[in-house]
């Protein structure tokens, strides 16, 4: 080969290698944008909100004076709403996942259900709020209560739980099922004694991610008509006299963390925006902890998985 050709080829190779290198730098740079945004968001809230974070902030009701306002009713409300959401979404999502993975025959109804679960995940969350407003609040008469909010969020995270359950069950080898059937177990015995325990960690990961999403979800709850200023707590679930447990709190008016934060952000006074930063900090730490827990669980699972 002539020297000229060789040098030409070399220069082409060098040019393409340069492109490779440039793109790699670009990739790292773009990732850095994401990292820096997150840093900016977190540090901005930390600097503004940290001074407000004291025990008083967690034990006081919202107030017209920003200095003495707190998030007591908000975090209690969030906890109670999450209880309802988990109680509704977890059994229903796991049940649906088991059905689709283990029981469903290959027919048109199954296909409709499967396409439907995928599509539900793409419906904007505020639409679920409208559904809850029309169905739970007015038609079923639950009112603007913890029950309505919890159910609305349960519908919202149902696809997350279903998909996680299906993936976890699908990962279990067929050998396990065949072994159980060979010993005479019925389908449900196989599911209950083998498939569910083995897929528990995977399902739990999905449930945690779903609940973390539900905690931060604001729009559907605003649509239901949650109040932004609540200076009392719902009735206690434990009573001193028989039967000791009361469900009055289900019907109580409420507020939740993201709504409290939204309320403070949208006020013009700067002092309230500092409260918003503090509430946001609590909210972010809560959701990030849950997400990190889920990621860690998944990581552990992948490492220990030996069938």
């Amino acid at each position: 080969m002539k020297d000229k050709d060789l040098s030409e080829i070399r220069s082409i190779i060098a040019r393409h290698k340069l492109w490779d290198f440039i793109f790699m730098i670009l990739g790292v740079f773009v990732l850095m944008i994401a990292v820096l945004t997150f840093m900016a968001l977190f540090s901005h809230m930390l600097i503004d909100g940290m001074p407000r974070l004291s025990l008083d902030f967690f034990t006081s009701f919202p107030s017209r004076r920003p200095g003495s306002a707190g998030i007591l009713s908000a975090w209690v409300g969030t906890t109670l709403v999450m209880l309802v959401t988990a109680a509704a979404a977890v059994p229903m999502g796991i049940g649906a996942g088991i059905y689709l993975e283990e029981y469903a025959p290959k027919n048109i109804i199954t296909e409709i259900i499967e396409i439907n679960v995928t599509n539900l995940a793409g419906v904007p969350s505020i639409i679920y709020g409208l559904l809850a407003l029309s169905l739970f609040v007015h038609q079923l008469g639950f009112g603007q209560s913890i029950l309505s909010a919890g159910l609305a969020l349960a519908l919202l995270i149902l696809p997350v739980v279903i998909v996680a359950t299906r993936e976890a069950i699908r990962a279990i080898p067929v050998v396990i099922r065949e072994g159980a059937y060979a010993l005479g177990a019925t389908k449900w015995q196989t599911v209950w004694d083998h498939l569910l325990p083995y897929s528990a960690a995977g399902i739990l990961t999905g449930v945690i991610i779903g609940l973390a999403r539900a905690i931060g979800e604001t729009a559907p709850i605003i649509t239901i008509g949650a109040l932004t200023f609540i200076a009392f707590l719902p009735p206690s679930p434990i009573k001193p006299d028989f039967p000791f447990i009361s469900f009055e709190w289900l019907m109580a008016p409420f507020t939740v963390m993201p709504i409290q934060m939204f309320n403070w952000v949208s006020r013009p006074e700067e002092a309230f925006q500092i409260n918003a930063a503090a509430a946001g900090l609590v909210l972010v730490v809560m959701t990030l902890t849950m997400n990190a827990l889920a990621i860690y669980l998944r990581y552990r699972m992948r490492k220990n998985l030996k069938w």
Binding site: A212, V265, G280, T287, M290, A292
Partner: peptide, 23 residues
């Protein structure tokens, strides 16, 4: 990077709203 991006997707939208308005 993957878990980090996942965490980024888990931040509540109301917090992003705060970030957009005040930062």
């Amino acid at each position: 990077a993957k878990p980090f991006l996942e965490l980024l997707g888990g931040v509540p939208t109301v917090v992003y709203g705060y970030f957009a308005l005040l930062f």
